[in-house]
Design a protein around this nucleic acid. Structure first.
Length: 367
DNA sequence: AAGAGGTCCAACCGCTCCGCA
DNA sequence: TTGCGGAGCGGTTGGACCTCT
């Protein structure tokens, strides 16, 4: 922009702030508030000097220019930008310190799915947290977490490259069958693997449907990927066999089944559900069905097997459907009983990261 | 115990936005 | 309309701290 940086003046201090500098800054801002950050370091230094001998109001009336050299010798030898950052990110009295709570984490995920890397905008929804803090937390924790769970951290959508591993996952299922003969796994491990394969199919289904929605029709006026492929896959999933919501009308009326078509919904990591799902001790079942009545989507009913028999959530996923978080090479070798010990193994609800879609008040607020 | 590597976070840098003359 | 300067934003960095071997 052709403008010199604010901190390029000789002699301005950089680096970590000392307690004395903090004190100067806090004292000044407590007394006068913050406004002109550029002028503040000079005034802050001067403010302390006034405690020694001068009256601030008297000297201000004399003008700054005559005070410049005095101020630099005695003042906060920092640029205004540095002062502002120190105040907003560290010294501000309303800053909340410590670890982010589960609720805050969910809020950040949710807000980031809507706002992207607009850290300051996200911070406005998290009282006491700074944009810098949220940004750091995102980069060091949440981003990695999403990646581990098979999500693109920028789009919050399932990573399509996960599907390249689908044959591997299915092979894993076959391996399980072989291992039953020679190295029997316990029942829970087998069930988890079976669920994992079903979820892999579900995700692949999602992939097919999303692809079908985006693929242009070929010269015969047909999609390169047909809904039938997806439906065949669906039919191979026991949950669908057991819950035959899918009937012929859905198949015949495929035009009403428009996965991935223009939707105004936004993904939402629903806090209450996530909180529930984050408890690895609570197992769950799920049932799925195509939802033609809503024009698009997939009903997803999650039934907790916890203490509360009424704890059932019926959700609509216009797509994507929930995905598998992480299926590692050593999944079959990990301790199947230790589902709660690691988020990287498929062992419970914590690895199951649904995206709920419904109208979002924040979107209205933003728009 | 010590060194290597990894993680975390405060602070900096470069840029854009916006108000004002 | 244009250019300047302050405020603020997001990306990056460097060093302190932690963990692992």
């Amino acid at each position: 922009m052709g403008r010199s940086p604010c901190c390029d003046e000789n002699g301005l201090k950089k680096g970590p702030w000392t307690p004395e500098e903090d004190e100067k800054l806090v004292q000044y801002i407590q007394k006068h508030g913050h406004g002109s950050w550029r002028a503040l370091p000079k005034l802050a230094g001067f403010y302390l000097q006034t405690h020694l001998s001068l009256s601030l109001s008297l000297s201000l009336s004399q003008g700054f220019s005559s005070l410049q050299s005095f101020i630099f010798l005695a003042g906060l030898n920092r640029c205004g930008k540095s002062c502002r950052l120190r105040w907003t990110n560290y010294l501000r009295p309303d800053i909340k310190r410590g670890k982010f709570s589960q609720e805050e984490e969910q809020s950040i995920l949710h807000l980031h799915s809507i706002l992207g890397n607009k850290w300051s905008a996200i911070a406005t929804h998290l009282p006491g947290r700074t944009d810098n803090e949220i940004k750091n937390f995102w980069n060091t924790h949440l981003k990695k977490k999403l990646i581990q769970m098979g999500f693109d951290p920028m789009t919050h959508q399932p990573r399509t490259d996960l599907f390249s591993s689908l044959p591997h996952l299915l092979a894993l299922a076959n391996l399980r069958d072989l291992m039953v003969d020679h190295h029997p796994l316990d029942e829970q491990a087998m069930r988890l693997q079976a669920d994992a394969v079903q979820l892999a199919k579900l995700q692949y289904l999602q992939y097919l449907l999303q692809s079908a929605a985006s693929i242009t029709t070929n010269s015969y006026g047909q999609n390169d990927l047909t809904d039938m492929e997806a439906l065949n896959l669906l039919s191979s999933i026991p949950a669908f066999k057991e819950n035959p919501v899918l009937n012929s009308s859905h198949v015949e009326n495929s035009s009403s089944f428009s996965p991935g078509s223009t939707t105004t919904f936004q993904p939402l990591h629903h806090p209450s559900l996530l909180a529930h799902l984050s408890d690895p001790q609570v197992p769950f079942n799920f049932q799925t069905s195509l939802n033609s009545e809503m024009g698009q989507g997939c009903n997803f009913t999650m039934i907790s097997q916890g203490d509360n028999p009424h704890d059932e959530s019926s959700l609509v996923f216009p797509f994507p459907t929930p995905v598998i978080s992480t299926l590692t090479d050593d999944m079959s070798l990990s301790n199947p009983g230790d589902a709660s010990s690691s988020t990287s193994s498929y062992g419970g609800a914590s690895s199951f990261w649904p995206e709920l879609f419904f109208e979002d008040p924040i979107m209205h607020e933003i728009s």
